[in-house]
Computed example of a mutant assay.
Amino acid sequence: MLIAVAIVFGGGGAPAPLTGLLVQLTAAVEGIVFFLQLPTGKRPPRMAWVLVALTAAIPVLYLIPLPPAIWHMLPGRQSQIDALTLVGLEESWRPVALSPARTLASLLSLLPPAMVLLMVSSLPPEKRVYGGVTIVVIGMISLLVGVAQVAAGSGSDAFRLYAESNSGWLVGFQANRNAQADVLTILLVSWVAFAMGRSPIARRIEGIEPPLRAWFVGIVAFVILVAVAMTGSRAGLAIALLVALILAVTAAARRRSGMSRKTTARSGFSVRGRVMALAGVGVLAIVAAFTSTLGGLSRVADRFDFAGEQRFNIWADSWFAIGQVWPWGGGQGSFVPLLIAVERLEFVDRTR
């Protein structure tokens, strides 16, 4: 349940803290119940605990208050010292984190993935596959919700969970296009792995001839890639295409080496196989018509027009901000206040 809740309600980001809190509370409750019912011999492996501890160590260390003699020497703290001097608190103990509340929020956000890691690692392999199946099912639902969002048109809030989101693009249960692209890329990996491996999904299509099975899996993978493109995330599309290439090469290598599962030879294709082939052609036609009608591909292409792109200026300001607090940094979650403090005014968006 935690994976499903995280995908559906975990994509609001900082503007939607209540949904994030819901995911964290779900992780805490489900984790407690899970470990109370878990047999003693089925505890998570030591390496899982080590990974969780190492991941949480940095934000925890950055939240420990330090004496003024130490934190005054940290780079990029002069403005903080000057501000605290105005209220007579310059000699107070302060953590390395410039924004302790944001760093604490970052630490709490690690609870759901940490619980998933610990719970999944304590399960036998035959039960771990259901986590992947959950990703496939909820991911597909997210894709369909995104299709409805795109069909509703730009400026419409229909089928959107958050007031602040990339309107007009396929974002599913997320608020940000990049987050949805990540969800769909994970869906792509899960779909190919579970459809071609030994899982409940694979058993459903086991009777289909290998060529048509590969065709069916490929069609669905192609639809997922189109959905990634419809998010409008440039980095997300690049990553998804790279992942798809790796999956294709891996599948081809498995097929050549004879590692893929074999089926009894048949003459021709079964009725079920022919239906699947025709369904695949129909899906491709629907996807093509959908993207063409909405001008989807042209809109995606426009995203790669970098004329007037301000992102490069943001990167330059970000690099400067990093240099101000190098090498200790300002703590997890401190990027926004750090950037605002050094952002060049000529590149500030005055409409937001």
Rank of each mutant, 00 (worst) to 15 (best):
1 M>I: 09
1 M>K: 06
5 V>N: 06
7 I>G: 06
9 F>W: 14
11 G>T: 03
12 G>L: 09
14 A>R: 13
15 P>R: 05
15 P>V: 08
16 A>W: 11
17 P>Y: 04
19 T>K: 04
21 L>I: 10
23 V>S: 06
23 V>K: 11
25 L>Q: 04
25 L>P: 06
26 T>Y: 06
31 G>N: 09
31 G>Y: 13
33 V>K: 14
34 F>L: 01
37 Q>N: 12
48 A>F: 01
48 A>P: 01
50 V>A: 14
53 A>R: 08
53 A>Y: 08
57 A>Q: 13
60 V>N: 08
68 P>L: 05
77 R>W: 02
82 D>N: 14
87 V>P: 04
88 G>D: 02
93 W>I: 04
101 A>P: 03
105 A>S: 13
107 L>K: 13
111 L>G: 11
119 M>T: 05
120 V>I: 15
132 G>D: 03
136 V>W: 01
139 G>Q: 00
143 L>K: 03
143 L>V: 10
144 L>Q: 03
155 G>T: 00
162 Y>K: 00
163 A>G: 10
165 S>K: 07
165 S>H: 15
167 S>W: 03
169 W>M: 00
169 W>D: 00
176 N>I: 09
183 V>C: 07
184 L>Y: 10
188 L>F: 07
192 V>I: 12
193 A>E: 05
196 M>E: 14
196 M>A: 12
197 G>Q: 10
201 I>P: 01
201 I>G: 02
204 R>C: 04
205 I>T: 09
216 F>K: 06
220 V>D: 03
225 L>Y: 13
227 A>S: 15
235 A>R: 08
238 A>L: 15
242 L>F: 15
248 A>K: 07
251 A>F: 09
257 S>T: 12
258 G>E: 05
260 S>K: 06
261 R>P: 03
264 T>H: 12
278 L>K: 05
279 A>G: 15
290 F>W: 01
298 S>D: 04
298 S>I: 00
309 E>H: 11
309 E>L: 05
315 W>S: 10
319 W>G: 07
319 W>A: 14
324 Q>P: 04
325 V>C: 01
326 W>T: 01
326 W>L: 06
326 W>V: 01
327 P>Y: 00
329 G>M: 03
329 G>D: 02
329 G>A: 04
330 G>E: 04
331 G>D: 09
337 P>G: 05
337 P>S: 07
342 V>P: 10
352 R>C: 13
